[in-house]
């Protein structure tokens, strides 16, 4: 809770700084289609699996943008659901909240947890754009860079302890670099994340193999097919901290479609590998985002 308050204090401080930096008339909206990205599994502006350096919403430096989202991933032995909301301020700061549900369904009984046993995780995120410009600076290879923090709290502390996890909450820190290469119609992102999370925190933090932060990579590469449609692939490495429960890297093939500036749909084929002893967790990822 102390960590959460500290993170919230940081976010409020950043907002104040951004507000003071640019006084004057507010203009909401006005960003170009898809250039704010979509909302990823942790509620941050990005692709599906990766957090990007872009700031969520269609606001420019002169305004405020916001999104709500719902995401589901149907896997052979589990279901994942998430919903949340995010705010973008002056294309500079993003704050987000997502509530994730990792539903073990019938598999819960096989794991001895009980049928339909579900882990819930709250993810509070804040992101600050620190350098570069992904969209306008097309005469430079320098990407837009943002730093972010995600405070995560899982509601199944007792089970996490039982499976060898060390904590039911944790904080991820990341640095994201994103660039739109208009000349090639490409969108590229590379993000480094310092984390102790097991399956992104759905199975807690730290474990018998490792209880330290490790540096993980997540990235996206997409091709703009039309101004409304981005198709691509993503990859996300994972720490594999738990002694008994192996975790694999995540990957997906995605298509993000902006119906307009208020609604976008992301569909992906996600491969999450082995999850809690069940191998081959591949399935459909579907996410709907509405906002301005």
């Amino acid at each position: 809770m102390k960590r959460l308050l500290r993170a919230a204090g940081l976010a409020v401080g950043l907002l104040g700084a951004a507000g003071a930096a640019r006084a004057g008339e507010m203009v909401n909206g006005g960003k170009l289609l898809l250039t704010g990205g979509v909302t990823n599994v942790e509620g941050a502006g990005g692709g599906g699996l990766a957090s990007w350096a872009t700031i969520t919403g269609y606001e420019t430096v002169d305004g405020v943008g916001a999104n709500v989202h719902g995401t589901m991933v149907n896997l052979p032995d589990y279901d994942f659901r998430a919903y949340g909301a995010s705010l973008g301020f002056r294309d500079r700061i993003e704050v987000s909240y997502a509530r994730q549900a990792f539903d073990t369904g019938a598999t819960g009984a096989k794991l001895g947890l009980g049928s339909g046993f579900t882990f819930h995780q709250d993810v509070f995120g804040a992101k600050l754009r620190v350098a570069g410009d992904a969209v306008y600076a097309q005469d430079s290879w320098a990407p837009q860079v943002a730093v972010g923090v995600q405070f995560k709290h899982n509601d199944r502390g007792a089970i996490i302890k039982a499976i060898g996890g060390k904590d039911d909450s944790g904080v991820d820190y990341y640095v994201a670099a994103t660039k739109v290469l208009l000349n090639q119609s490409l969108v590229l992102d590379g993000t480094l994340r310092a984390t102790k999370a097991n399956q992104a925190g759905l199975l807690g933090f730290g474990g018998g193999k490792k209880d330290d932060y490790s540096l993980q990579f997540e990235g996206s590469a997409g091709l703009l097919v039309t101004k409304r449609l981005l198709i691509g692939a993503e990859y996300r490495t994972k720490p594999d901290n738990l002694a008994g429960l192996k975790e694999d890297d995540w990957m997906d093939l995605f298509a993000a479609y902006a119906v307009n500036k208020h609604l976008s749909i992301t569909a992906a084929y996600a491969d999450l590998g082995e999850v809690a002893t069940f191998k081959g967790q591949r399935g459909l990822y579907l996410s709907l985002q509405a906002g301005f």
Partner: peptide, 21 residues
Amino acid sequence: FRAQNQLLAKLAPMHRDVVTR
């Protein structure tokens, strides 16, 4: 669309000089 983006890549950096507020 590809050619559109190639022209936009030339124009986008002009944001620096065109946008003044």
